[in-house]
Amino acid sequence: MGLDPEVRRRAALLRLDEVLGVDDEAAGPAPRDPPAPPLRGALDAAVVLLATLYLGVRHSLTDCLTTPLGREQLARQVVEVGRRGVPIVVGVTFLIGAIIAIQTAYTLEPYGATIYVARGVGISMTRELGPLMAAVLVAARSGSAIAAELGSMVVSEEVEALEMMALRPRRFLLSPRFAALTFSVPALSVCADVAGVLGGAAIMVLQYDIVARAYFDETVRAVYLSDIGSGLIKSVFFGALIAAVACRCGLSLRGGPEAVGRAATAAVVQSIVAVVLFDAAFTFASRGIL
């Protein structure tokens, strides 16, 4: 395959060789060729991203669960990405639920139908905004952190030090982050769904004299399990995408410490774009559009 040699070397580090069909010998030479032209660079990046996704899907659970070191790394990442992400996700989506309630109430009030605000908030939070906001916040919070951490590990030769200990970057770095994100984003989405509904309820109860009980009954009537389910399925993919993009940006970093900041920025931008593109494709496909 006509990949940039640097890409091939990074691929070998991640054990992408099996995916890309390059043997170790060919994967050899280290960063020493001039950078690829931009389009080639983007194509190479896309190939490595897809291969990273594939490796994550195929190996992350076994890598994490079979050794004490793997379980420890996974637990660390779940705490870092998932548990520490709860306050910001809950806070932001509570406000978003409240905002949607206000905007929807504004359209429905003339018809005396403000109770239907519960439907609008419930459905838009569970189907779309809960998972999406959770993913965007995780991309901003953890995508950048992961890319910066892995990038600075590349710069300070920590990745090579791990290689010396037979701790392959895939096993030790990619897999725990991949598994943690594919688990944490759906979990945070559930928090986001609940917080959004509560935010909507708070506005309606305090400002529009809707009885809390009625609001929640209406929500339960309007929101089907399939709404929640489709949101959660999407968010699993969101998590996987953010993990793959962030790990790729970090591990394929070239240059010195000054490149770490760029890697973090690239991880946030690329993972949000990837999440929204996937969301659009998923939504269009499931609604039979296109």
Binding site: A12, L13, D24, E25, A27, G28, A30
Partner: peptide, 8 residues
């Protein structure tokens, strides 16, 4: 002989 950065 050592072959390849990928290991072996």
């Amino acid at each position: 002989r050592l072959e390849g950065v990928g290991g072996g």
